[in-house]
Design a protein around this nucleic acid. Structure first.
Length: 231
DNA sequence: GCGACAG
DNA sequence: ATCTTGTCGC
C-alpha cells in the first residue's frame, strides 16, 4: 500500500486519522477474490500496564484441521490512546510488527473488532486487511455503530447490521443463549462468505477458533515475546 | 443539546 | 482492553 512506511511512529491527531480513514475506506474490496484457503490466522490485541504496553497475538491455523501451525506474540509500547472509531491506529503498530515476524503467509485473517461496520467504514479488520493486502474478516464482540433487529436464537442465525440504508455487517449467533458476534467485511471477501468462514471455524465456543486462540494468547498474563512453530 | 462509543 | 473471587449452571 502506498502510505508512509513509518506507521510505527504514527501519533496522529484525531482529525488527521479521520481524514486518513476516509481516504482509505474506498479501497476496501467487499467481494471474494481468493479461492484457496490453507491457513487462517486469528488476530487479537490486548494491553497490560494500564495500556502502556500493547500485545498483539497472531495464531495461524491449518484448514480444515484447525490445528495451530504458528503463533507470534508481539509486545511493544503503546503509542496512541483509545478513541472510539480510531482503534486501528492504537492497535495496528503492534499487529504489523507481529506479522513481520510471522513466517507463514495466511490465506485469510479473522480479526477481533470491526471490518467496515465502522462510522467511516474502516475498522481495524479492514485497515489491517488493506495494509497487508489479505482477505480479512471483522469479528467483533459488541457494536460500534449501526442498528439491527433481534438475532435468531438458533446457532447460525443472523440479522443484518445496517447504518442508514447501507448493510455494514451481520449480527451472528455463534452459540445459543450467548451474546451474538458482529461480523463484517474486512477486505477482499463478501459478507456471506465471511459468515460462512466464521461458522466453519466454530467448535464449542462463542468465538471462532482463530480468534479464540489469538485471544487466549494475547491475554495470557506473564507471557513474554515469543515465537513458536508447532508440527 | 443529549447519548453512544470496537478494544 | 484491564482490574478481579467466587459462584451459578449445563
Amino acid at each position: 500500500m502506498d502510505l508512509p512506511p513509518d506507521l510505527h511512529d504514527w501519533t496522529l491527531d484525531p482529525a488527521t486519522a479521520v481524514a486518513l480513514q476516509t481516504s482509505l475506506a474506498p479501497r476496501v474490496i467487499r467481494e471474494d477474490r481468493f479461492d484457496r484457503v490453507r491457513h487462517i490466522a486469528g488476530v487479537d490485541i490486548g494491553f497490560e500496564d494500564k495500556g502502556a504496553t500493547t500485545r498483539a497475538a497472531v495464531v495461524v491455523m491449518h484448514w480444515p484441521s484447525l490445528t495451530v501451525v504458528e503463533q507470534v506474540l508481539e509486545r511493544s509500547a503503546t503509542r496512541m490512546p483509545y478513541m472510539p472509531g480510531l482503534l486501528s491506529f492504537r492497535e495496528l503498530p503492534a499487529a504489523l510488527a507481529a506479522f513481520e515476524r510471522l513466517e507463514t503467509r495466511p490465506d485469510l485473517l479473522m480479526v477481533d473488532g470491526m471490518g467496515i461496520a465502522h462510522p467511516r467504514r474502516l475498522g481495524i479488520a479492514a485497515h489491517l486487511g488493506l495494509w497487508l493486502d489479505m482477505p480479512a474478516i471483522g469479528v467483533g464482540k459488541s457494536r460500534l455503530c449501526g442498528h439491527h433487529g433481534e438475532v435468531p436464537a438458533a446457532l447460525g442465525g443472523w440479522t443484518p447490521l445496517t447504518h442508514g440504508s447501507e448493510t455494514i455487517g451481520a449480527v451472528l449467533r455463534t452459540r445459543e443463549r450467548v451474546k451474538p458476534l458482529y461480523i463484517s467485511v474486512g477486505h477482499r471477501i463478501a459478507l456471506e462468505s465471511a459468515l460462512d468462514w466464521v461458522l466453519r471455524c466454530l467448535t464449542r465456543y462463542k468465538l471462532p477458533e482463530p480468534t479464540r486462540q489469538a485471544d487466549r494468547l494475547a491475554s495470557r498474563r506473564g507471557a513474554i515475546a515469543t515465537r513458536s512453530c508447532l508440527p
